[in-house]
């Protein structure tokens, strides 16, 4: 009996030690002051300034571009939420994550299986790709990023891959195994979005693996993060994820991740060091933070899916 009690004590102590080490190693503390919610705008509807499921966001200068999913349009606002213009209703079926490069807006169209390109004023320019599962073809593209040299990176949600294409749509290479979801062996699990930094580092939102992959300009994995060993262990601790739906690199060079099921945005350095987290908790069956973008002054704009609104956050002082 005594031996059993001793064993139980020993096991308890070991569990506490392991738990403590796990917490210290894999649950980092914020490195910055807390962000504050400056304002929100929008409600459910189809008028200017209203949304029916916002699904993507991008910022350029003093303008905020929003994918208005079920209204199949892009709405543009100033940084205070005043509606400026809208476009894309003819060309877009279900716009999702977006990016801006060389004064053009690239929109992943989930239903059309194409990338649609517009001027920032709203003129339709061209489409890239076509439906299909082959090289340079798309099946449910969730997000797009464009590097300085004009190369495109497209997250193929159900094709379990990210493709790199030339500006004219020619296939260069891909990450992930087409049509095969997985966590190991170079596989992805429902990638939702991509972002590229100024130095050419590619960041993949490996959505259902609850992790971010950082890939260098040669296509090699630099690092990955998201929970212990970045191996599809989801959670709500700092630095952990529960389904990533959007990712962006801000003017500061930091990486912002929309952590959808946790209703928050998490901010990291490019090497994956956790910096901060903020968001609005959901009150409904679905969730809030689906996409994120940082403005030049450090303000962060979040597409809030559940509440059909945009959140504007200010960094702490």
């Amino acid at each position: 009996m005594k031996a059993l009690l001793k064993l139980a004590q020993w096991v308890t102590v070991m569990v506490l030690i392991i738990g403590g080490i796990t917490y210290l190693v894999w649950v980092p503390s914020p490195q910055e002051s807390a962000y504050t919610l400056a304002k929100t705008w929008g409600s459910k509807g189809d008028s200017a300034g209203q949304f029916n499921e916002p699904t993507g966001i991008a910022v350029k200068g003093n303008e905020v571009f929003v994918s208005d999913g079920r209204n199949h349009r892009i709405q543009v606002f100033d940084v205070n939420g005043n509606a400026l213009r809208q476009f894309g209703a003819k060309e877009l079926e279900r716009p999702m994550n977006m990016s801006i490069q060389n004064n053009e807006l690239y929109v992943a169209d989930y239903f059309a299986d194409q990338i649609k390109v517009f001027s920032l004023q709203g003129e339709y320019r061209r489409s890239i790709g076509k439906p299909g599962k082959g090289p340079g073809e798309f099946t449910i593209p969730g997000g797009v990023a464009v590097s300085n040299n004009g190369d495109l990176y497209v997250a193929g949600f159900t094709q379990q891959r990210v493709q790199q294409l030339k500006a004219d749509g020619r296939f260069v290479q891909q990450w992930g195994v087409s049509g095969e979801a997985g966590t190991f062996g170079g596989k992805l699990r429902y990638p939702t979005d991509v972002a590229v930094s100024k130095d050419g580092t590619l960041f993949i939102a490996d959505g259902y693996n609850d992790r971010v992959l950082a890939i260098d300009a040669n296509g090699e994995i630099l690092t990955k993060w998201g929970g212990p060993f970045a191996m599809n262990i989801l959670g709500s601790f700092n630095g952990w994820f529960a389904t990533i739906t959007g990712i962006s690199v801000g003017p500061s060079g930091n990486v912002f991740v929309a952590d959808f099921y946790n209703d928050r945005v998490q901010k990291f350095t490019p090497d994956g060091t956790f910096l901060n987290a903020f968001g609005i908790k959901t009150t409904g069956p679905t969730h809030t933070s689906i996409a994120v973008a940082e403005a030049d002054d450090g303000s962060v704009f979040v597409a809030d899916y559940a509440n059909h609104q945009i959140q504007k956050w200010q960094p702490g002082k």
Binding site: E53, I140, T245, Y261, P285, T286, H287
Partner: peptide
């Protein structure tokens, strides 16, 4: 069915199927 990426994927597959009149997704 809380993630729109998945819900939209289902919606799209049915919408593009010949003979389907409507697709509604009740998240609640």
């Amino acid at each position: 069915l809380a993630c729109p990426f998945c819900a939209y994927g289902i919606e799209k597959k049915f919408t593009k199927t010949e003979g389907v009149k409507s697709v509604d997704i009740d998240l609640v």
